[in-house]
Simulated assay, not measured.
Amino acid sequence: MVMAIKDMMAKRAAEEIQNGNVVNLGFGIPQKVLNYIDKEKTVFFHAENGILGAGPAAHKGQEDPDIVDSGCVPITAVKGASYFDSADSFGLVRSGKLDITILGALEVAANGDLANWIVPGEVVPGMGGAMDLAKKAKKVIAITMHTDKKGVPKLRDRCRLPLTATNCVSLIITDIAVLKVTENGFLLTELFEGHTAEEVIEKTAARVEVSENIRIISYNQESK
């Protein structure tokens, strides 16, 4: 069965999560990652408002108004979940206890800088916990479309938008490829089926090194 590209991106991100990890998911595509966790893995999902052990979104009619994610979306809680106040929640984040955070991105720089909270001139509620998550998680994965709606590259030599955090992103998953952030900049390691290294280079506003062994991720959930 052919899978929608945003779901493919989320599924690829889920591969980075290991058994026993403590993970925080950002808004948008990252929230889909919950749907693709291997059933054999025990993963503890954290929400900044004070839950460790967050589960998938609650089915309609089964919502509990006291169990919501940091965006106030009704969710479920897995067996053994714990609840605490926001001070303890951010204490967990700032003490480096998060193994992985998966965040959306407006721009990512070749050195791992992340901009994901504001476009100048637009009204936004604020940065939220993104700065703490990006700086303190052991691994930061950015998941985003490769270009914006106008075709402007989101992966750049330097971010033009206000930064969320510096030198934090280690892996980027876009709708066409997977790239690592290295000391030399972007390294292309994987392509979604139907896309090429030349396309990635053309749509990236920075130098891209190409791995010798490129993995092709298939839309039918099978990898070559």
Score class of each variant (00 low, 15 high):
198 E>G: 06
100 I>W: 11
130 A>M: 12
179 L>I: 11
19 N>I: 10
106 L>R: 08
163 L>I: 00
118 I>S: 11
180 K>A: 06
152 V>T: 14
3 M>D: 00
157 D>N: 14
170 S>Y: 07
59 H>Q: 09
127 M>P: 07
22 V>F: 10
171 L>G: 01
182 T>E: 11
36 Y>S: 06
74 P>W: 08
38 D>M: 03
6 K>W: 01
88 D>E: 12
145 M>S: 11
36 Y>M: 05
201 I>Q: 12
41 K>Q: 03
158 R>K: 15
18 Q>P: 00
164 T>A: 02
196 T>S: 06
14 A>M: 05
196 T>V: 00
38 D>V: 05
2 V>I: 11
67 I>V: 13
159 C>N: 11
138 K>N: 14
163 L>V: 00
157 D>W: 07
168 C>D: 13
30 P>I: 04
86 S>N: 05
111 N>M: 04
209 E>Q: 14
215 R>A: 11
122 E>F: 14
223 S>Q: 07
77 A>Y: 15
51 I>Q: 06
115 A>F: 07
205 A>C: 06
168 C>A: 15
23 V>C: 06
159 C>K: 07
187 L>K: 13
211 S>P: 04
28 G>E: 04
110 A>K: 15
164 T>S: 10
94 R>W: 05
84 F>L: 03
57 A>F: 10
2 V>R: 02
182 T>W: 04
15 E>G: 09
178 V>D: 00
101 T>N: 09
157 D>L: 08
90 F>I: 14
87 A>F: 14
163 L>H: 01
45 F>S: 06
117 W>S: 11
186 F>C: 06
36 Y>G: 03
178 V>A: 02
215 R>W: 00
150 K>R: 12
110 A>V: 07
19 N>K: 04
113 D>R: 09
45 F>M: 04
170 S>K: 15
137 A>R: 04
59 H>G: 05
88 D>C: 09
140 V>N: 13
160 R>W: 06
20 G>F: 03
40 E>I: 03
190 E>L: 03
27 F>G: 05
191 L>F: 00
106 L>E: 08
159 C>D: 06
28 G>W: 05
106 L>Y: 07
128 G>R: 12
87 A>H: 12
12 R>W: 00
68 V>W: 05
209 E>I: 04
36 Y>W: 12
39 K>S: 13
120 P>V: 05
165 A>F: 08
25 L>A: 02
44 F>Q: 10
108 V>L: 07
202 E>C: 02
175 D>G: 01
49 N>V: 10
216 I>H: 01
